[in-house]
Design a protein around this nucleic acid. Sequence first.
DNA 1: TATATTTACTACATCAGACATAGTACGCCT
DNA 2: AGGCGTACTATGTCTGATGTAGTAAATATA
Lengths: 115, 115
Amino acid sequence: MVSISSDVIRGYNDTMILSILMNEPSYGYNISKQIKSISDEKYTIKETTLYSAFNRMEKNEYIESYVAEADPETGAKKRTYYRITDKGIEYYKNKCDEWDLTKDVIERFIEHKGE
Amino acid sequence: MVSISSDVIRGYNDTMILSILMNEPSYGYNISKQIKSISDEKYTIKETTLYSAFNRMEKNEYIESYVAEADPETGAKKRTYYRITDKGIEYYKNKCDEWDLTKDVIERFIEHKGE
DNA sequence: TATATTTACTACATCAGACATAGTACGCCT
DNA sequence: AGGCGTACTATGTCTGATGTAGTAAATATA
């Protein structure tokens, strides 16, 4: 069974998270579910990976956090939201460019079936 | 300047090396030059990364080594050649499949210019 | 009503690949 | 004689990902 190894995705967890935050601020559990869903269940980010990415990115000022208190009406629990910063947007765009370059290079060393 | 970060390529250095060994046995310096040339100078593997990959892969039995003595006629120095094993070929093919999957997933989180 | 599950985290320790730095050694060219 | 290209080895550090464990509130289920 072919599955995605952490060494491969390494360095792109941050990018995936930021890509979701490009749309709107969100929080851990929701981001995790979105990543799973967008990837058609092909990739599930580990909880610890996710939260350590939050810490790293907040330290780097790619994201900012704010706390939303629990709302008994909607049933929402108290949670920490993250919002992407301008620096984060910049970083995200850079990673996208880097991805295009990297993909192109790695492809040259890959054999595809039926070639 | 966009350049390839080690975190991204991580896990694919082995694959690049194996892809070269799929053609014929080779040795450090030559493999390093081939990677540089195939990637159009876009990627240069570090010496330490290369040799530690050799050690790791030999331990995992993905490659085998043999020593070629110096040949004063061709001017070749004594060097260690590496040959891919059946297990290595298997591993390489797996990594290729994994790559296709990974690429597909990451692409979903990437914004390309002009979209 | 008791318990399991989902939600929403935090803390701590470990692993492994990439890399920086440094050094060895031989041959060739100027 | 000194620099450069070739061909490595040794050692230690850094960082992202992960394993394991624990807390706690709300909601679903038995």
